Amino acid sequence: MANLRLSELEVGTNYTAQELDSFVSTTDVVLLSTNENQLFTEPNREYKVTHEFEGFFEHSADDGEKYYRKKQAYVVEKV
């Protein structure tokens, strides 16, 4: 079995859903997928990392304010 422990993702590279699952489980990141909530339904399906961001804005339901979160975020799409 291949080593699935990834320490980072690279834009333009394909990863299996299983590899992405392992990455998310061990890293404090956000993954945005073009196929909604089906990202982890097929472990061998491949996804390409199309964008990488150092952070993002988030709206707080508690106080109605918008906050910038400095947290790695990636966009992946089905290959």
Rank of each mutant, 00 (worst) to 15 (best):
50 T>N: 02
19 E>I: 10
62 D>F: 05
79 V>R: 09
17 A>V: 07
16 T>R: 11
42 E>C: 10
45 R>P: 01
18 Q>R: 15
20 L>H: 08
40 F>I: 06
12 G>C: 10
63 D>K: 04
17 A>P: 06
26 T>I: 01
6 L>Q: 13
30 V>N: 08
52 E>V: 05
33 S>N: 11
62 D>W: 02
39 L>T: 14
47 Y>N: 13
22 S>F: 07
16 T>C: 04
11 V>N: 01
16 T>P: 01
38 Q>E: 11
38 Q>H: 11
23 F>R: 10
36 E>I: 06
53 F>E: 04
38 Q>V: 02
34 T>H: 11
37 N>I: 01
25 S>L: 03
5 R>C: 03
35 N>D: 14
15 Y>G: 11
55 G>M: 08
48 K>S: 08
68 Y>W: 14
42 E>P: 00
44 N>C: 11
56 F>R: 13
68 Y>G: 05
12 G>Q: 09
5 R>S: 12
2 A>E: 08
69 R>W: 03
59 H>C: 05
71 K>H: 05
44 N>V: 14
55 G>Q: 10
42 E>S: 13
7 S>R: 11
30 V>L: 07
10 E>W: 00
59 H>V: 05
35 N>R: 10
4 L>I: 05
54 E>F: 02
41 T>L: 11
29 V>P: 01
56 F>T: 07
63 D>T: 03
32 L>F: 01
37 N>Q: 07
44 N>G: 10
61 A>H: 10
50 T>Y: 00
78 K>F: 03
56 F>D: 01
